[in-house]
Nucleic acid binder design. Structure first.
Lengths: 104, 104
DNA sequence: TATTCATTTCGACAATCATGGAAATAATAG
DNA sequence: CTATTATTTCCATGATTGTCGAAATGAATA
């Protein structure tokens, strides 16, 4: 995970709507959630939602899984972890004031 | 730390230049760094740097400390931690797949 | 006070972004 | 096939953002 990738992930999560989408997915853990479910919870137009989902997908923070006429989304925990690790990496010049943390 | 605050922090770190600035401050830990030092390391105009610093300051990710004719900047680790906690909070509906982590 | 160095403010610009309506595509059910 | 539901693509638009030059401010020293 380099600086470009990390900045891209952070930037996408920096939009309130996308952060809410991502949180819904994170909270539901490994349960399956499709676009329709999200739309109901968020109450935003389908085109807007689709736009946000593709942005999150592009930076690798979420994955999609097609099944029948639904598309299920779930968070990509490794990418989230990578992003966090980059932020905390080499904190305080290796004095390691930050315990490593693992995600899922 | 609510969703608006978290999104604001994430968004500001989503800019590559600002992420680099933040990283320099994080890496140097509790050592003092002023604007001049940063400018040397980054090689960007002072107005641009100042612009980025004020954005990071506004969302509480860094603090400034005036001393003589210098202004020293340092990361606000609690805010960074709050941001990360928000992202990981309630992951997988309380199945607690994510160990809590502490920053500094 | 004058000088010097550090930092900020102002003003401008192109580039990117968020949003959503409308139409198009995909997939299943009847 | 037709109807229905789910999802995406296309397109437009106003708003925000990133960048930087130039000027202004601040603070210390001589």
């Amino acid at each position: 995970m380099n600086i470009q990738e990390t900045a891209a992930c952070l930037g996408e999560l920096g939009n309130e709507t996308r952060l809410e989408i991502f949180r819904i997915l994170v909270k539901s853990g490994h349960k399956k959630i499709n676009v329709g479910d999200l739309q109901q919870q968020l109450d935003i137009p389908n085109s807007t939602l689709s736009h946000h989902l593709s942005k999150l997908t592009n930076v690798g923070l979420i994955n999609q899984e097609k099944e029948g006429r639904h598309i299920f989304y779930h968070p990509h925990f490794k990418q989230l972890q990578g992003m966090i690790d980059f932020l905390l990496d080499e904190c305080c010049e290796g004095e390691s004031c930050l315990p490593k943390n693992n995600c899922c």
